[in-house]
Every structure is written in C-alpha cells, then in structure tokens.
Design a binder for these strands. Sequence first.
DNA 1: AGCATTGTTGACGTTTACGTAAACGTGATA
DNA 2: TATCACGTTTACGTAAACGTCAACAATGCT
Lengths: 134, 134
Amino acid sequence: MSTVQDRTFTIGELAREFDITPRAIRHYEDQGLLEPERRGQHRIYSRRDRVRLMLTLRGKRIGLTLQEIRELFELYDTANDDESQLFEFIKLLSRRESQLRQQQEDINAVLKEVGSLRVQCERLLEKRTGGIPE
Amino acid sequence: MSTVQDRTFTIGELAREFDITPRAIRHYEDQGLLEPERRGQHRIYSRRDRVRLMLTLRGKRIGLTLQEIRELFELYDTANDDESQLFEFIKLLSRRESQLRQQQEDINAVLKEVGSLRVQCERLLEKRTGGIPE
DNA sequence: AGCATTGTTGACGTTTACGTAAACGTGATA
DNA sequence: TATCACGTTTACGTAAACGTCAACAATGCT
C-alpha cells in the first residue's frame, strides 16, 4: 500500500509521450537533470522524473541551456537551506525575468509583422485568383 | 544632394551599438544576412543593413537560426513576384506563429513560477532577518 | 618615422545538444 | 529456438554560432 502515486515509466514511454528520442533523455541524465532509478540495468522513471523532464523541455523552449536548467533545479532544491543562496536565487530570477520580458516583446513584434504580412499575402492572392478573367 | 538618408556605418560602430563583436557581424554576412558595400576592402553598412542586423538579432532572440532568418529575408524580398512562394510564405508564417504562441505560454508559466518563488524567498528572508532577536 | 586604432582574410578551436552506429543483454512471442 | 522489441554503454560525428589567433593593410596622430 502506498500513499504517493508510484506509477513509473520506461524511457521509451517518456520518449513517445514528449516526442523526443531516448538518446535525448539519457543525455539529460548525463547533464544531471534526471536521476532515474535502476531495475537491473534498465532505467525506471518516477513521477518526479517525469515532471523534471517536462520542466526541462519547457526550459529549453524558452531558450535555457541544459546547464542553466540544472542550476535552477539545484538552486530550487537547496535554496531553502541557505540564506545567501536565496539572494543568488532571487538575482538569477530577476535577470531571467527581464530576459523573458524582452523575449515577450520580440515575439509580440514578430507576431504583429507576421499578421500583417499574412494579410498582405492573402489580399494579393485574392486579387490574382479573382482577377484572372476566365 | 540625396533624397534618402544615406548615413553609413562601420563594422565597429554597429558592433558597439548592438553589443556584439565584429566577428559576429561578418559571420552574419557569410550566412547571407547582410550585404554591405565595400570602400576599398572595408565594409560600409547602409541603414538597410542596420535594419537587417536589428531584425537578425531579434530573430535570434526568439530562437530562429541564422538560416531561417535568411530564408525569411529572401521570402520577404521575393514573395511578391511568385505566387507559389506566397503560399510557402504563409505556411512558414503559420508554423512559426504557433511556435511563438507556445513560447508565450511557456514564458508566462515560468514568469508565474518565478513570481511566486520570489515572493516565497522574500518572505523567508523577512522572517529570518526580522526573527533574529537583538 | 613610429605607433595605435581599426579593419581585412583565412583557418582552426569551442560549446551545446544531441545523432548515429556498434555491440551487446533480456524478456515476450510466434 | 529464433527473432523482435526494447533497453544498455561507449564513442565518434555533426550542425550552429561564433571565438580566437595570425598576419597583414590603411589611416591618423604625435
């Protein structure tokens, strides 16, 4: 009988779920992002591992390196114990926050352009397809 | 007398302005993103080049590769001439748009976490600094 | 004239994030 | 029992985006 949900996952399951290769998952482990247990020599991934994998992928999508992601994990794990680490953590978060806001601006600018360009394109196409007289 | 503003820039000026190295700028040229003129063997950058450089850097910030940025430039330049290219352009824009929206979500999620973590940290610090008697 | 500054062209080096291939183990199944 | 399907380690390969010399102009002080 177990209180916590103890469903586990194989490397292939996770790979399929997140549409990445097993190789990538092993690579994340090499970089210290995951620490699956072993049943014999096979890796067994817990829910916690799965969450970390999700966070890893999200981190990647917003442009973090694997090392930075690892540092975040480490800080998150240890910050509560050490006061000076807390300051570091806050500083890191601040820096990252401004970067993210910059990215937001960039993305909004591009989305705007993308939108108007699309409209232009579509108008052009309308004109041509409609404009060819028989 | 010239109608169009014809201010030009040296590689060093642009490097300083955008806080990158001349090497990087030359690299962008190698990749077909810039086409500065030459005065003798020195590069002379026009306003158009400067704009392209800005767009390049913005593209990078939102995670485009230099090649993708070049393709966008090319499409942007030629799309008006070719109808089939227009479709390609629109498809490319659509794909990128959904990626950008995904990124927006990711960033929002992270910002949210960052915010609450910061609050947690600050509370902890308050408690400790305030909690030490004398 | 001499030296600093700024620029130029190679060309090899580096980091990140995996891909890919070899060579092998293991349990399920036809 | 043979053959998948899935997993493992080890190790070299690769693409992107520059960094980092080296070796050499051209220009501008002083």
